[in-house]
Design a protein around this nucleic acid. Structure first.
Lengths: 148, 148
DNA sequence: TTAAGTTGGTATTTATAAATATCAAAAATT
DNA sequence: AATTTTTGATATTTATAAATACCAACTTAA
């Protein structure tokens, strides 16, 4: 009589997440401030992390510690993702979107006024969730160039 | 009765290049070892740098010092460039090329056996020369997604 | 209602990437 | 032929990104 907890259900408070990842609470807040992660926030502003969040952070940790990519490097890589194509923005929407023009910040860190994404919850967006690794971003770019 | 020196003519020895860039000779060799740059080599193995090389290195310096992107971060960003599309590789050529699959090394650092590029001089390749900045790479990706 | 956990902030530490120094052998220059 | 420069390689230094420690005020949960 147990229910499965969905992967994207925010359940872990920050200290638990920190323990799971073997890092300090402040490091988690730092990643958030740097716009690498968007944890769920309760009405009282307390953070909650899902299993998906944990995996995402593991991936970021790997980029920093194993691949030796700096946080600004990770942000720049995220900014390469053609979100406009995934979302399906029109020519005009693209040109008017600051994320389309940025090569230093991921789109979810920008949220330009008047854009399609302005009122979206980036935490729930595929662009944020599905492309947390270089390899996924490059795969998406590959698909843009399919010959067949 | 003077001839203009072409931008891509390798003329500066390493010490001159280092002085122009205000860095040490060894730093230049380090960038080369990390596959960020490909200076011209004389038959005696001595390096020569062109004005284009100098500009490229300035760009790399800016990424490291101003944008705070680590060397491995820069390499990873370079690896996002869809070289296969620029070169015009076939489906089969793509799949058989290690550069197509890498997301940590730029294509010119790989030079897979049996590939179109195997015997090319990457130093003279557009992929190496035209896309030394994030912004240029993102622009190329943007063009892949043109609606019209 | 008391103890434990979280908040955002600054100040400090640490780990290490990036750059420098030094070397003998080879090449270039004058 | 003598002086300067470049080569690659290792060993060392430095600059700083990333992580930690500490703080008082605010939640949360026994």
């Amino acid at each position: 009589m147990f229910y499965e907890i969905p992967q994207d259900e925010p359940i872990y408070p920050i200290s638990t997440a920190a323990k799971m990842l073997n890092i300090s609470v402040h490091t988690l807040r730092m990643y958030e401030k740097e716009n690498l992660i968007i944890p769920f926030k309760k009405s009282t502003n307390h953070r909650l992390y899902s299993q998906t969040d944990i995996e995402r952070i593991r991936c970021i940790r790997n980029a920093i510690n194993e691949s030796k990519i700096s946080i600004n490097g990770i942000k720049s890589i995220y900014s390469m993702m053609p979100c406009w194509e995934y979302i399906g923005c029109s020519d005009e929407e693209r040109e008017n979107c600051p994320a389309y023009h940025s090569h230093s910040e991921p789109c979810w860190a920008i949220k330009g006024k008047g854009t399609v994404c302005e009122k979206k919850e980036c935490r729930n967006c595929d662009v944020y969730n599905k492309f947390s690794e270089c390899s996924n971003i490059k795969s998406f770019i590959k698909n843009l160039t399919r010959v067949k």
